[in-house]
Every structure is written in structure tokens, then in C-alpha cells.
């Protein structure tokens, strides 16, 4: 309901502003209390959902072949600037990044280096075989003479510690230096996480007194290698979606629902910016009927029936029929 007591200014512009930034449309109209209320409520709901979902709940990912439709995003996009980047991120990610179930054929698009944390799996070392935890530095780049996407060159250097009860004389904290030549799998470049997972094959040297040849599969993540540009509102691939469900459990779903509700609440706020409050200003006198005198009639207290009851105070002109009031039925 549009109230003449509220200056809605340009309602269309206010609605667009309210969509883009919850609260901004009402601030433009000078409705400061509502601007603050909508801003705090909608942003906090959206933010809680974002945190509960580990920053992975806002994404635009449609894959009609797999039966996925972005219905949830239709609600999230109502929050405006917070969710619009998801459209851009999906256009930046390659179809392979989003739709492929396996990460086996994602190529290394540029050199990567940084701190690496993970595992040496099924490592063959002097006198045995087993798994180790690893922490150190990695540098990896596409092989210049690559004939297919798996060929890379890289180095891995750091310390290992035993991951299980191994019968070995290799002490924890031993240093290794490996060469990477084969990339087994790689997380997409555009993905909602600061760390980037990879699996590769490596071989090299175990340094120190118990040194010797070492060959292992390597699985882990390069820490803090993705910029916010490459991770904010980025789409989850099928494998990432499964992992996220496994890691977060119900909190992923709850985070989604929070962001959906934030968007739907902003839809109400947008309508308020366009049309004003639905029931009026809020200090109007209650319009409509007053209570009927107890001695008059037995009809219902609808406005019309009440008027009819009051009209019985004045007798009708002679010759006109007396109005009858049927209990429980309003006069039509």
C-alpha cells in the first residue's frame, strides 16, 4: 500500500538499489530505521549461511544433463552484489571444471608453488614400503615438451613423519627431495577454497644417514594458493560437491537454506521499497465498525450489519418493509 506520508522518491530506482545492496534502497528513500533493519537482518542471515557452508554455498552451477537446476541460486541472487559474482565465476570456469565428475584430466594451467601439506602414499623406501605425512615446499609447472596434459615438471622438498606403525628405521623429521613428473589429478583453478588439492607421482632421494631412493604417490594441498578472485562464489564441481557434503554434513544444507532465506527476505524488502508498507504507516486509527449496542439485534458485527443495526434507531418510512437481520448472516 502506497502511503502519502512516505516519500518513496523514485520507487524503481529504490527497488534496484534494495536488490543490489539490502538496505540501500531504503537509505536512498531516507527510511533509515528500515535501512538499518533490512541491512542487518539480511546481511547477517546471508553471512551466517556463508560461514556455515564454509564459503561454498553460493554458486551458480547448472548441468541439465545431470538433472541439476539452479533453483537455489534463484533465491540467492535476490541478495544482489553478494551473489552476482557467481555468474561471472561460472563463465570463467571451463565446462570441464564444473561438469566433469573426475579431476583426472584437468591440466595445470600455470606454474604453482607454495607450502604443501599432504601424504606420501605407498612410498617405496630403502628396506620397506608405507605411508608418510609430508610437509614442505612444492613448485610445479607444465612441462614445456608435454605431449599430453599429465606431463609436468616440479620439485617437492620437505620433511616426513610416519603415518602408521611402520617397521622402518627412518626417523620422523627426515628430509626428502623429490622430482614430480606426472600429474594424476588436480582441483579446478576456479574453486571455492584457498588451498588447491593435487595428486602426483614423484621420485627422488631420502636425505640423511638412512638415505636412499624414494618413490611415492603424493596427495595433498598447496596452501593458500588461490586468490579471492579465483575462489569467491566459484562453482563446485561434482567431486567437490561430494567432498563438501562429506566434510560439512548438515551444515552445508543449513548454510544453503540461510542464504536462500536471506534472498527471499530481500524480495519482501524490495517490494517495501517499491510500494511502501503493506498495512500503512502503523499509527492509523482502526477503521471500520464500532461495537453494536447490546440491545440491538443479534446479527454479526460486520460494518454493513452494524450500520443496519444502527439504522433501526430511526424507524423506516411508512409503507417500506422493516429490514430483517438474520443471526449470523450479514446483510447483503
Amino acid at each position: 500500500m502506497s502511503s502519502s506520508r512516505i516519500d518513496l522518491k523514485n520507487p524503481v530506482l529504490a527497488t534496484i538499489l534494495a536488490w543490489l545492496v539490502p538496505g540501500l534502497g531504503h537509505a536512498y528513500q531516507g527510511r533509515w530505521f528500515k535501512a538499518a533493519l533490512y541491512s542487518v537482518c539480511i546481511w547477517s542471515t546471508f553471512g551466517c549461511g556463508w560461514v556455515l557452508g564454509d564459503g561454498k554455498v553460493v554458486y551458480y552451477n547448472t548441468d541439465l544433463k545431470r538433472g541439476r537446476r539452479p533453483i537455489g541460486y534463484a533465491a540467492q541472487v535476490l541478495v544482489g552484489v553478494a551473489s552476482l559474482p557467481a555468474l561471472l565465476q561460472t563463465s570463467r570456469a571451463t565446462p570441464r571444471d564444473i561438469h566433469q565428475f573426475s579431476r583426472d584430466s584437468i591440466p595445470l594451467e600455470r606454474p604453482l608453488s607454495g607450502e604443501f601439506e599432504g601424504w606420501l602414499i605407498d612410498a617405496e623406501f630403502p628396506g620397506g614400503r608405507g605411508n608418510f605425512k609430508f610437509r614442505g615446499q612444492i613448485s610445479i609447472e607444465p612441462s614445456p615438451d608435454a605431449t599430453f596434459v599429465k606431463s609436468v615438471t616440479g620439485k617437492l622438498k620437505g620433511t616426513i613423519s610416519k603415518a602408521d606403525e611402520l617397521e622402518t628405521n627412518i626417523p620422523d623429521g627426515s628430509t626428502i627431495e623429490l622430482t614430480i613428473d606426472y600429474l594424476r589429478s588436480l582441483e579446478p583453478a576456479i574453486y571455492p577454497s584457498s588451498d588447491r588439492e593435487l595428486q602426483c607421482e614423484a621420485k627422488g632421494q631420502l636425505l640423511g644417514a638412512n638415505g636412499g631412493e624414494l618413490k611415492a604417490g603424493v596427495k595433498g594441498k598447496i596452501l593458500n594458493v588461490r586468490s579471492i578472485w579465483n575462489r569467491y562464489a566459484a562453482p563446485l564441481d561434482a567431486e567437490g560437491l561430494e567432498e563438501t557434503h562429506g566434510d560439512l554434513g548438515k551444515f552445508f544444507e543449513i548454510g544453503l537454506v540461510y542464504t536462500w532465506i536471506a534472498g527471499l527476505l530481500n524480495l519482501l524488502a524490495m517490494w517495501d521499497a517499491y510500494e511502501g508498507p503493506a498495512y500503512g504507516y502503523g499509527d492509523e486509527e482502526p477503521a471500520g465498525p464500532t461495537a453494536a449496542p447490546p440491545d440491538v439485534g443479534a446479527g454479526t458485527a460486520t460494518p454493513e450489519s452494524t450500520t443496519a443495526n444502527h439504522s433501526t434507531d430511526i424507524p423506516p418510512p411508512v409503507g417500506e418493509p422493516q429490514p430483517t437481520v438474520v443471526p449470523g448472516v450479514a446483510k447483503v
Partner: peptide, 25 residues
């Protein structure tokens, strides 16, 4: 308990779209 903040925000935003006066909202 995660329903509690939702109840608060939904009731505040819904009633803010119904009325204009802060006390009434």
C-alpha cells in the same frame, strides 16, 4: 538453535514490510 536467528530475522523483516513506525514494527 540455528532456527532462533531465523525466527528473529524473519519476524523483523516481515513486520517491517507491513508497517513504517519502528515501535509498531
Amino acid at each position: 538453535w540455528l532456527l532462533l536467528p531465523l525466527i528473529i530475522t524473519v519476524s523483523l523483516v516481515y513486520n517491517a514490510t507491513r508497517y513504517e513506525l519502528p515501535e509498531k514494527i
